[in-house]
């Protein structure tokens, strides 16, 4: 089980600020693809990703027990 945290407008799209994905391990890229299909989160092409509060790139891996946060940059000021 991988825990997913969604920030800003991703929440509204997915209807929740937290999701879980039942996987042993996956690359961030694959994880994004799953979420894009399931929740139409096309915005995932433009987010920062943290695994256990550390910045990661798309080819890195998340494992069961990890918390993955998707953080879309917001532009207002």
């Amino acid at each position: 089980m991988i825990k997913i945290l969604l920030f800003a407008h991703l929440q509204e799209k997915a209807g929740s600020d937290q999701l879980t994905i039942d996987k042993e391990q996956t690359t961030i890229r694959d994880l994004k693809n799953i979420l894009k299909e399931t929740y139409q989160l096309i915005e995932l092409d433009q987010v920062m990703t943290a695994v256990n509060e550390e910045y990661v790139m798309d080819d890195e891996i998340a494992k069961a027990g990890d918390t993955v946060a998707f953080i879309p940059p917001v532009s207002g000021g």
Binding site: L5, A8, M48, E54, Y55, A69
Partner: peptide
């Protein structure tokens, strides 16, 4: 040294280590 993100309505506060970026 971390990037901070928060959501006051949903009571989230998140600090992300970014050294590796």
């Amino acid at each position: 040294t971390k990037l901070v993100t928060f959501d006051l309505w949903n009571n989230h506060y998140h600090m992300m280590k970014v050294d590796r970026a």
